[in-house]
């Protein structure tokens, strides 16, 4: 059981990171980024290329995964989402745009990266015993790094000037604009931060799981599950959703055959949403 709980912790922290990224984008743009999983996948490949192909340190690759995928997000906001959102009559179009971007990125990745599954050499060796359970050191490192990143992100959003402006924008765009904040640059940055987190989590997890070009959709679906559980647009909800999903998944995999786990998770989430349509922490939305 301790083993399962520790696994849940590993998966949960990284999932929380994924959910935070998609939540940031959702809360400031009111767009669900369907390409989140694909950005995660690209982050994984960035680390693979820097670490394995170019032979640079893993940590350097990790920083680059954040920067590259983040810049990709900034470009997406500036050249795709903003011009479309300004003109559409129906909000669904932006969702469609995100889906189109997802398909585009995935097929492009297939061309550039190929079909093969890619991984990186272990970032740490050895096995740690914790409360009677055994965990590879690599995973411990991943948990610690992910937890530190979450803390740093929360601090950034909670206490820095930019972070506060982001939160203000999420609540009321017009009012924030009136205070002289440059929304244009801020929302591009927020979008970039969100996608950067997707890249970062992909880059971090490539240390444990290998990545392949088709991994995106599954990750996107998991991200949706997490924000539905936690409540869309709420940062604390995203973290919570990440841990809940990580827990359910770890327990499920320990007890059930593979495909059944997620089937049951889907059913649980559907039933849960009937009782709480806005997720655990979510505000009425709609």
């Amino acid at each position: 059981m301790t083993q399962v709980m520790l696994n849940a912790l590993v998966v949960g922290t990284t999932y929380a990171l994924i959910a935070l990224g998609i939540t940031i984008i959702f809360s400031i743009m009111k767009v669900v980024n369907f390409a989140h999983g694909q950005l995660y996948m690209i982050g994984g490949f960035v680390v693979y290329y820097f670490n394995v192909v170019f032979g640079l340190p893993f940590w350097f690759g990790l920083v680059m995964s954040f920067l590259i995928v983040g810049l990709l997000g900034v470009a997406m906001e500036l050249f795709l989402f903003r011009p479309v959102m300004l003109r559409v009559k129906r909000e669904e179009v932006t969702m469609l745009l995100a889906m189109g971007t997802a398909v585009f990125l995935e097929s492009l990745a297939l061309l550039v990266f190929g079909e093969k599954q890619r991984g990186v050499p272990p970032i740490a060796t050895g096995i740690v015993e914790l409360f009677g359970a055994r965990l590879p050191t690599g995973r411990i490192v991943v948990i610690v790094v992910a937890a530190m990143l979450i803390a740093a992100l929360m601090a950034f959003i909670g206490y820095t000037k930019t972070g506060r402006a982001l939160r203000a924008m999420a609540q009321d765009r017009e009012a924030t604009a009136l205070q002289g904040v440059n929304l244009k640059w801020l929302s591009a940055m927020g979008f970039g931060l969100g996608t950067g987190l997707a890249g970062l989590s992909g880059g971090l997890l490539v240390a444990i799981f290998a990545v392949h070009t088709g991994a995106g959709t599954a990750i996107s679906i998991k991200a949706f599950l997490m924000i539905m559980i936690g409540g869309a647009g709420v940062l604390s909800g995203a973290i919570l959703g990440g841990f809940v999903l990580g827990f359910l998944e770890s327990v499920g995999y320990a007890l059930l055959p593979g495909s059944l786990t997620f089937l049951i998770i889907f059913l649980i989430v559907i039933c849960f949403l009937i009782v709480r349509p806005n997720g655990i922490m979510g505000k009425p939305w709609g």
Binding site: I221, M228, W285
Partner: peptide, 13 residues
């Protein structure tokens, strides 16, 4: 009963 993005996500699931 769900609307908007929530409905889109749940139907995707």
């Amino acid at each position: 009963r769900l609307k908007g993005v929530y409905f889109a996500m749940i139907t995707l699931c």
